[in-house]
Design a protein around this nucleic acid. Structure first.
Lengths: 108, 108
DNA sequence: GCTTCAGTTAGTCATTTGACTAAGTGTCTT
DNA sequence: AAGACACTTAGTCAAATGACTAACTGAAGC
């Protein structure tokens, strides 16, 4: 992963991990609770959490034998910014093309 | 890839592919022109384009021996919507927590 | 203090990914 | 018609990914 964005997008490219993020918008939760709805082995699930944490999408803290997982908003904003910038650039270009078309029409 | 979002996010998880999308916001271009700035073999690069096309981020058309690549905005919107919805949900929850804190303070 | 409970570590496995080279196809250009 | 040009196809390879089981650690609960 060269870039931060690489890790963010790769983290969100998996449905299990997106489901975890969706769940966490309702509030922080321990690993076991997050794991419950997913029909995969716990170690497998833990790897998904590690990936989210590595991407900075999530923060965790250990309390006794329980590990609590919290969502982290900053990377979501960063990814959203990248996407919306691409869309803006693309739309601005469409506008320029439209203007060119208008000029061409009025000449004809 | 279960979901459309899987393909979208996976497509954007690679720096070469993001660079292609960034370049395409300036306008459509043939494969060779898109390939030029990247120091990888052409077949490798073509696979990246295929991935973008499979994710629906890009459309291509063959004109003679040249293949022209165009950006496709819809998937960008879809991904952006998913991200911004998660952020909105998360922020709404923060607001609720703040309100609870205020109520608690005024009681104390 | 013995036992559950909540993770954790370690190790295996099939599939996918991103990269390469070498050779092939179809389209201009001359 | 010959050669160059712009991809395409085919095949190899190493590393990463997502899944599993089995065995371990350390904190509660009784």
């Amino acid at each position: 992963m060269t870039n931060q964005l690489d890790a963010f997008f790769a983290a969100l490219a998996d449905p299990t991990r997106r489901a975890v993020i969706e769940r966490l918008t309702e509030g922080s939760a321990p690993v076991s609770e997050l794991h419950a709805p997913h029909d995969i082995a716990l170690p497998t699930f833990m790897k998904h959490l590690s990936r989210l944490e590595a991407a900075g999408l999530v923060r965790t803290e250990k309390k006794g034998r329980v590990r609590i997982v919290h969502i982290e908003a900053a990377p979501l904003e960063q990814a959203e910014n990248w996407i919306s910038q691409q869309r803006r650039l693309w739309e601005r270009r469409l506008d320029r093309l439209e203007e060119l078309a208008r000029k061409f029409d009025s000449q004809a």
